[in-house]
Structure formats: structure tokens, C-alpha cells
Design a protein around this nucleic acid. Structure first.
Lengths: 161, 161
DNA sequence: TTTGAAATGGATTCGGC
DNA sequence: GCCGAATCCATTTCAAA
């Protein structure tokens, strides 16, 4: 049982539903209900609630990046010397508008930010990089190119039920 | 138009379908077909083909990590002094079995590997770390804790059609 | 107030043009 | 690529606990 910020609780059945939907959201309510040992109706109501409460954020199709010509993943570590809120907001806004940047976190420690960028080629990465540094000034940028994707999942480590 | 490894081509209509499904896979075929300007039937057959060819890898529900008690994201940079294939396979296999490790890449350059780990707390991260280093020996491990998730998307930057 | 069985109506699937 | 029938499935309703 997970205790959320909201007054709502997530019980074991919810966790089972979430586990299955985060692994495969294309299965029918019917099979989901059977796996979770509840009626279709109960299952439907719980899924509705999980969606309404934003526990299920969205349902998406995951696309093979290699097959659509985006084989290169780059991790970019950024340090800044400008720690003002205005600069941070400018950076955030610039990144937001760049679809090649798929992940973006502010970190504690040595490195201030990390970006994950998906592109077609090193040349393509350079174009993204150039575009970014014209929008916002970065003190130090260090790119690491991924040679091999060994694991990628959107499935969160939910507790065993 | 994207030229894939396979003999199959992805045309502008496919790209439109992919764009919409990677943003929201819950919409009906009907609305998808209308947006893409094709008949339901054509749309359905294209989606089938995209799934059969593995361009659409899977359909999943994305879950709010904060709301299920997993607010902490940690990026871990790993260096190794053992560059044998056997060691690499042992590492890969260990990571594969740990659901808290949601992403894992081999990198070019200074750092050999990067891991993205999602956990409930710093103490929880430490348990994952301890478990990992008992399974495989790592020369140097450096963890960076995410203070703020500024952007996360599974949507790939597909070309404008 | 919650639950599940059954009905409805809409969406999906797939053969044939 | 399009039509349309058959099927499947999400959602609503309703009755019972």
C-alpha cells in the first residue's frame, strides 16, 4: 500500500493495475480485470480513478528510435555560473522548445544540469548544441555519446503486492 | 520521409500517426484517422504495419513517479577497470534484474556507463547501490541526485511533415 | 455506498471490392 | 485504398448487497 500526497490511497489491486498498464496498455479491460482478480466494472472504475487523480499521467506509444532514424543518444552535463532565477527560467524555456532534448534535470553537486538528447547523428547533435548556446549562456558543457543502449524502460519499480 | 534499415519506408502519413500516438495513444482510430486525413481503414492498417515492423515498440501507461512514492531520480556515472566481455555481460545482467534502474547506457569517453535510478529516498538509493556492488565490481561510481525534473518525455523528435 | 451482471452503443477488425 | 459486416470492448445502467 502506497500512501500518496492526496487523501487517496493506492492499494494492492491498484498497484497490480498500474504494473500491468505500465508494461502494456493495449490489453483489454477484460483481461486486465481477470489478471487482477476483480470484475471488469471494478477494474474500469479503478483505472478511471487512477487517470483522474493523475497517477496514470498518460498513455503513449513508444517508438523505436533506431527505426525512425534517431540512433544517437547524448548525455550533456551542464555547469552554470549564473544562478539567478531569471537565467534558470530562460534555460528551462529554451530546453522546453527543443524536442530533441527529451530529458532535463537539475542536479545536486558538481554538475548543475543533465540533458538527454536524441538525434540522428553527431552533426545533428552539434546543430542542437549550437542552437542551445545561442539561446542561453552556459559556463561548461560536456557531452557524452551513448555507444549502446543497454536498458530503457518507463516502468517504475512498484512494490511487489 | 524516413529511410529505415528495413526495406520499408515511413512516409509523411506514418510520421503523423507516430507523432500522435507517441503523444497520446488513447485516442480512437477515428479521430487519429481524421487528424491524419485518411480513412479509418487506412489508418488502422498503417498502425498495424508500424506495430508489426516494430516501429511502434509498445503501448504503455506513464505513471507519476511522485504519486507512487518514487520521488528520487539518481544519475550514476560508472567507470570500470575491467574491459572484458564477461564483465560487461555480468554488469548488464545484474542491471537488467534491478527494476529501480530504469535506464542504462554505455558511453564513449571518460565515463564508461551511465545509469538512471528511480527510488523512494536516499536510503533506498543506497540499498540499490549496495546490491549492485555486491553483484559486480565497479572501479568508480559517482551519484548525482536530481533536485528537479524539468522535462521528461518519451516523444521522439520526428521531422515536421 | 459499493459491486457486479447485463445491455448498449461505439470502436475495431478484417474479408472482399 | 475503401466499404461494410461481424466482432469486440468500453461505458452505462440497474438491481442487489
Amino acid at each position: 500500500m502506497i500512501d500518496t500526497i492526496m487523501s487517496e490511497k493506492i492499494d494492492d489491486i491498484d498497484i497490480q493495475i498500474l504494473k500491468h498498464l505500465q508494461s502494456d496498455s493495449s490489453q483489454s479491460l477484460d483481461s486486465l480485470a481477470q489478471i487482477c482478480g476483480v470484475s471488469i466494472n471494478t477494474c474500469w472504475r479503478r483505472v478511471q480513478r487512477l487517470e483522474r487523480d493523475g497517477i496514470i499521467e498518460r498513455r503513449v506509444a513508444l517508438i523505436d528510435n533506431d527505426k525512425v532514424g534517431l540512433p544517437l543518444t547524448v548525455f550533456v552535463a551542464v555547469k552554470t555560473d549564473d544562478h539567478s532565477a531569471a537565467w534558470a527560467e530562460k534555460f528551462r524555456s529554451a530546453v522546453d522548445k527543443m524536442p530533441e532534448i527529451v530529458e532535463f534535470y537539475r542536479l545536486a553537486g558538481e554538475v548543475d544540469y543533465i540533458l538527454k538528447i536524441m538525434v540522428a547523428s553527431v552533426a545533428d547533435y552539434d546543430r542542437v548544441y549550437q542552437r542551445l548556446i545561442t539561446k542561453v549562456s552556459l559556463a561548461d558543457v560536456s557531452a557524452s555519446f551513448a555507444m549502446e543502449k543497454l536498458k530503457f524502460t518507463t516502468e517504475l519499480p512498484l512494490p511487489p503486492t
